[in-house]
C-alpha cells in the first residue's frame, strides 16, 4: 500500500517538525531514525530525504529568527566557509561508504547528542571585548528586557568545529546543529539564543550543500520527498506558533534516554546483529 506509506511519512513529519520546533532540534535526527529503523529504506536514501526535511524546517524557523534579528549573519558567513565544503565532502564520502558504516557513524552522533542533552547547562557568561573581526553581535533579549551585546571568542576552534559539523551532516543527514550550538555557546562564548539562531541559519545551507550532491546522483526519492517535506513544514509551522519552547529538564533527560536507546539499536544493526 503506497498511499498508506506516504500518509505515515506525512504524519511522522508533522510529529518530527512539531517536536523539533519545541525542543530546538531541526527534526533531522527524528527523520533519519524513522526512515532507517521504521520504514527500513536504504540508509543513503534515508539520509537524502532527511536532508530535505532539515532544509525545510531550518528555512521556516530561519525566516522568523532572521526577522527578529537573533541571527548573526556575518558570523554565519564566516563559519560557512568551512561548514559548506565539509558538507560537500561529507556527501561524496557517504555515497562511497557502505551503509553499515553510515549507521555506525549515526549511532555515534546520537550518543554524542545524548550526552550534550544530559548536561544541558547553558553558559550565560558572555564577554564583550574589542571586536576586531567585526563579527560580534547584539540582539534584544525578551527575558532580560534589554539588548545583549557579545563578541566572538576562539574563532579558530569554531571554524574547525564547523568543518566537522559539515562533514557529519553530509554523511548522516542531520544538519549539524547538535554539534555547532554547544561549541558556539561554550567555546566561542556566544549567548545561547544567538548560537541557536545562527546555527539554524547555517544548517539550511549545510544541508542544501549535501542535498544537491545526493540530488544530482539521483538518490532522492521524489515520491517520498513530498510527504516528508510537507509533513515537516506543517509540523514546524504549528510547532512555532502553538507550542512554546520548553526548557523542561525532564523532557531533556527523556530525549537523552531515547537517543541512547536508538544509538544502541543502530550499533547492533550496523554490526549485523539485529536484522529485520
Amino acid at each position: 500500500m503506497e498511499i498508506a506509506l506516504y500518509i505515515t511519512i506525512f504524519l511522522f513529519g508533522i510529529f518530527a517538525g512539531g517536536l523539533g520546533a519545541t525542543l530546538g532540534l531541526g527534526g533531522g535526527v527524528l527523520m533519519i531514525l524513522f526512515f532507517t529503523l521504521a520504514i527500513n529504506i536504504p540508509i543513503h536514501k534515508a539520509v537524502a530525504l532527511s536532508l530535505l526535511a532539515v532544509i525545510a524546517s531550518s528555512s521556516m524557523a530561519g525566516s522568523v529568527y532572521v526577522r527578529d534579528k537573533m541571527t548573526n549573519i556575518r558570523l554565519a558567513m564566516i563559519l560557512e566557509t568551512c561548514t559548506v565544503p565539509g558538507a560537500v565532502l561529507g556527501a561524496f564520502l557517504a555515497l562511497s561508504l557502505p551503509g553499515r558504516f553510515i549507521e555506525a557513524i549515526l549511532a555515534s552522533v546520537l550518543l554524542y547528542a545524548a550526552l550534550v542533552s544530559f548536561r544541558q547547562v547553558k553558559s550565560e557568561k558572555t564577554i564583550f571585548r574589542e571586536d576586531r573581526l567585526g563579527i560580534g553581535g547584539e540582539y534584544y533579549d525578551e527575558a532580560k528586557k534589554g539588548m545583549v551585546r557579545y563578541s566572538v571568542d576562539r574563532l579558530k576552534e569554531g571554524l574547525f568545529a564547523s568543518l566537522l559539523a559539515g562533514i557529519v551532516s553530509g554523511i548522516v543527514g542531520i544538519g549539524g546543529g547538535i554539534i555547532k550550538v554547544p561549541i558556539m555557546n561554550f567555546i566561542m562564548k556566544i549567548p545561547i539564543k544567538a548560537s541557536a539562531a545562527t546555527s539554524n541559519f547555517m544548517v539550511g545551507v549545510t544541508a542544501a550543500a549535501s542535498a544537491v550532491v545526493y540530488f544530482s546522483k539521483g538518490v532522492v526519492d521524489l515520491q517520498m520527498a513530498v510527504p516528508t517535506v510537507l509533513g515537516i513544514m506543517a509540523g514546524a509551522y504549528m510547532g512555532t506558533r502553538l507550542l512554546s519552547q520548553t526548557q523542561s529538564p525532564y523532557l531533556r533527560i527523556l530525549l537523552a534516554v531515547v537517543l541512547i536507546f536508538f544509538s544502541i539499536v543502530l550499533f547492533l544493526k550496523s554490526g549485523g546483529i539485529l536484522v529485520w
Binding site: 530535505l52 532544509i55 545551507v205 542544501a208 540530488f215 521524489l222 513530498v226 517535506v229
Partner: peptide, 26 residues
C-alpha cells in the same frame, strides 16, 4: 510539490530543486 502530485515526476523534481535552491538563494 503539491502540483507535482497531480502532474508527475518532472514537476516533483522541480519542487525538490526549488527547496534545495532556497538556502543557496539566501
Amino acid at each position: 510539490l503539491l502540483l507535482g502530485v497531480l502532474l508527475g515526476e518532472n514537476i516533483l523534481w522541480l519542487g525538490v530543486l526549488m527547496l534545495i535552491l532556497t538556502p543557496f538563494l539566501r
